[in-house]
């Protein structure tokens, strides 16, 4: 079955430099540095990545950071809480715009 997303394509991510090498090299160097242990632990960064993966709805990233989070010792409860953080921010981002709607309603109402 043909689909837009093929799990096998995740393995090809490192080969995007085939079409534009210097930018890909810079991106992957940056990417690698971002996920190094720093002020945040590698485990904390993995959970952030998992949450963002859900926010941007990237199936490749969800697969990758589910495995990565488990490898870093996170359990299902922690991972689901991370996804709820993403959901809360996404939902909140819609809802906070309701203030604009409310403003407009009040502006044009008697």
């Amino acid at each position: 079955m043909k689909t837009y997303y093929n799990p096998e394509d995740l393995k090809k991510f490192g080969k995007i430099g085939e079409f534009q090498k210097s930018m890909a090299d810079k991106f992957f160097a940056y990417y690698g540095e971002v996920f190094q242990e720093g002020a945040l632990t590698a485990r904390e960064k993995s959970l952030i990545a998992l949450a963002v993966a859900h926010a941007v709805q990237c199936p490749y990233c969800i697969d990758a950071y589910t495995v990565d989070s488990m490898e870093k010792g996170c359990d299902e409860e922690q991972m689901m809480e991370a996804v709820h953080v993403a959901a809360a921010i996404r939902g909140g981002a819609s809802l906070v715009h309701s203030t604009q709607m409310m403003n407009k309603v009040k502006e044009i109402s008697m």
Binding site: E37, T41, R43, E71, K72, G73
Partner: peptide, 11 residues
């Protein structure tokens, strides 16, 4: 499960 162990120090 079917995944590798992470950092020994952090775990």
């Amino acid at each position: 499960g079917a995944f590798l162990p992470g950092s020994q120090q952090e775990l």
